[in-house]
């Protein structure tokens, strides 16, 4: 079959792309999307290892990760909306209230 290391390398590439994307992008929504990519890369790794170890525990964990990511996306987007209402901007560099 397909050597599992390929999947893992793919997972690594996706993760690093997500990380780079987070630092490059300046608007909040897209940054959030890059975080979702990173989560997915982790999911891929989990499934790969589940297949390699022969147990289904990895898949159950992925199940939970997807669920939690959904909840997190809902709340996170709500917060982004609120920030937009207050500050009228979604540029992440304009949100500096926690400075110092």
């Amino acid at each position: 079959m397909i050597p599992l290391s390929y999947f893992l390398i793919l997972s690594i590439i996706l993760f690093v792309l997500g990380a780079i994307g987070f630092f490059i992008k300046r608007d909040l929504i897209t940054q959030f999307m890059t975080v979702e990519i990173m989560l997915n890369a982790a999911n891929l790794a989990f499934i790969t290892f589940a297949k390699s170890a022969g147990s289904l525990d990895g898949q159950v964990i992925v199940f939970f990760i997807i669920t939690v990511a959904a909840a997190e996306a809902a709340v996170g987007l709500a917060i982004i909306l609120l920030v937009y209402r207050q500050k009228k901007t979604i540029k992440s560099e304009d949100i500096k209230l926690m400075k110092g």
């Binding site: 669920t67 959904a70 997190e72 809902a74 709340v75």
Partner: peptide, 12 residues
């Protein structure tokens, strides 16, 4: 957790 997120998102 999902319920909490649901309620939280709406309230926010």
């Amino acid at each position: 957790l999902i319920i909490a997120a649901l309620v939280g998102a709406i309230v926010l």
